[in-house]
C-alpha cells in the first residue's frame, strides 16, 4: 500500500461561534491527486489553511507521514507540536494561492530560489539550477530576471507553482489556482498541473474547473457547509453524484 503523506482526522474549526469545519477527515497517499469541489463558503480554503498551518483547529489530528503536527489532548482539544516539529512539517508541503502572493520586489528567479537557499540552506548554485530548470519546464525561460509586475496572471501562477515546487515538497496544495485568471490564461496553468499529476506529484486541489477535476483526479471530494458530503472517483462524484446537494451544486456549475 502507498505511503500516507497527509493524515487529517476529525478536524473541527470555528471562527467565533460559527463552526466552519465539522468533523473533517482527509487522508492522502503518495502520488494521489485529490480535488475538492463545492460552493463558496463551504470551508475549502479553511481546510487547506488548517492543513498548511496558516490556521489552527480546535479539535482533531494532523500529521505529515510520521510528523505529528496536532493531536487531541486529554480534554479532547487539539494540542499542537513544538516549533521545531512545525518547521519540519512545513518542509513537507507547498501551497499555491489563488492570488499568487509572489514577492513583488524580487525577480522571478529570486522568488523561486530564495526559500531553498535561505530556509533550507541549499547551495546557491544548486538552487539556481533547480529553479531555472523548473522555470524552463513551465515555459518561463527568459523571464528569470523580470519582476512579477511584468508578467501576465497565467505566468505569475506558473512562477508561484515553481516557487512551491523548488522546496521539494512531498505534497502540494492548490487553492483555486485559476480563479483569479482570465479564462484564456487558465489552460496554461491547468496544463502544468496535469503534467505534475502525470509525474505522480501528490496534490490536493480546490477547483471549480470540473472538466479538469474529472481528468486529473484520483479522488474528488464535495464539501458543503463544513462537511464532506460525498467522496469518490470522479465518475462517482462528478458524473453520478448520489447526494442531492452534490447534484444541485453541479447543476449550478454547468449552467
Amino acid at each position: 500500500m502507498a505511503k500516507e503523506i497527509l493524515s487529517l482526522r476529525n478536524v473541527e474549526k470555528s471562527f467565533g461561534d460559527t463552526m466552519v469545519l465539522k468533523d473533517i477527515s482527509l487522508e492522502v497517499t503518495q502520488g494521489e491527486v485529490v480535488s475538492i469541489i463545492g460552493s463558496s463558503g463551504g470551508g475549502k480554503s479553511t481546510l487547506l489553511r488548517c492543513a498548511t498551518l496558516l490556521e489552527t483547529f480546535e479539535r482533531g489530528y494532523l500529521a505529515y507521514e510520521d510528523i505529528v503536527v496536532a493531536q487531541p489532548g486529554p480534554d479532547g482539544r487539539a494540542v499542537y507540536a513544538d516549533k521545531a516539529t512545525l518547521k519540519k512539517a512545513r518542509s513537507k508541503f507547498g501551497l499555491v494561492f489563488q492570488n499568487f502572493n509572489l514577492f513583488p520586489h524580487r525577480t522571478v528567479l529570486q522568488n523561486v530560489m530564495d526559500a531553498p537557499v535561505r530556509v533550507q540552506k541549499i547551495d546557491k548554485e544548486e538552487a539556481r539550477a533547480m529553479a531555472l530548470e523548473l522555470l524552463a519546464k513551465f515555459g518561463l525561460a527568459g523571464k528569470e530576471d523580470m519582476v512579477p509586475n511584468e508578467l501576465s496572471g497565467g505566468q505569475l501562477q506558473r512562477v508561484a507553482i515553481a516557487r512551491a515546487l523548488c522546496t521539494k515538497p512531498d505534497i502540494l496544495f492548490f487553492d483555486e489556482p485559476t480563479s483569479a485568471l482570465d479564462p484564456e490564461l487558465t489552460q496554461d496553468v491547468l496544463r502544468i498541473i496535469r503534467d505534475l499529476a502525470e509525474e505522480h506529484m501528490t496534490m490536493v486541489i480546490v477547483t471549480h474547473e470540473m472538466t479538469f477535476a474529472r481528468d486529473v483526479s484520483d479522488r474528488v471530494i464535495f464539501m458543503d457547509k463544513g462537511v464532506i458530503v460525498e467522496e469518490g472517483t470522479p465518475e462517482q462524484v462528478i458524473d453520478h453524484p448520489r447526494h442531492e446537494r452534490t447534484r444541485a451544486f453541479l447543476r449550478k456549475i454547468y449552467d
Binding site: R90, L102, F103, A115
Partner: peptide, 27 residues
C-alpha cells in the same frame, strides 16, 4: 503589505525575522 505575503513566506518556511527583513522591510 498584503497579508498574503506573510502567509506565502510562512508556508515557505521563513522565520518571522527572515520574513520581516527580506520580504516586508524592502517593500
Amino acid at each position: 503589505i498584503p497579508v498574503g505575503h506573510y502567509e506565502a513566506a510562512e508556508v515557505l518556511g521563513y522565520s518571522r525575522a527572515q520574513t520581516f527583513f527580506y520580504i516586508v522591510l524592502p517593500q
